[in-house]
């Protein structure tokens, strides 16, 4: 279901889609922006698109294309980071 994308010199990008997440209250000048908000269990998973490498091709993946299936979404610090 993900669409193939052409590999060009521009680095492909993605990002959140749909409704904008609730903005944090404005931070006073000089005050450090602290503590990003963790999303809640039982809440809708924020939809996004992201370019991906998948079995020899570059594709564009959209989370909402996987509705109807169980999804495990894993983040990690970086490629080649050992564990």
């Amino acid at each position: 279901m993900p669409e193939e994308i052409k590999a060009g010199c521009a680095r492909p990008t993605g990002g959140p889609v749909g409704e904008k997440p609730v903005e944090a209250p404005p931070v006073l000048a000089g005050e450090r922006k602290e503590a990003q908000v963790m999303i809640k269990v039982g809440a809708k998973a924020p939809d996004f698109t992201a370019p991906a490498y998948f079995k020899g091709t570059f594709v564009q993946v959209k989370l909402s294309d996987y509705l109807g299936k169980w999804v495990v979404l894993c983040f990690y610090p970086g490629d080649f980071t050992f564990v």
Partner: peptide, 30 residues
Amino acid sequence: RVGSVYGVYDPDAGVEMRGRFIIDPDGVIQ
């Protein structure tokens, strides 16, 4: 950008923490 929305992006380090989310067929984080 996606990691920020999910609360796992560390802007100081510029990387994402080892976060794992289980999402059900309705798109709800379990």
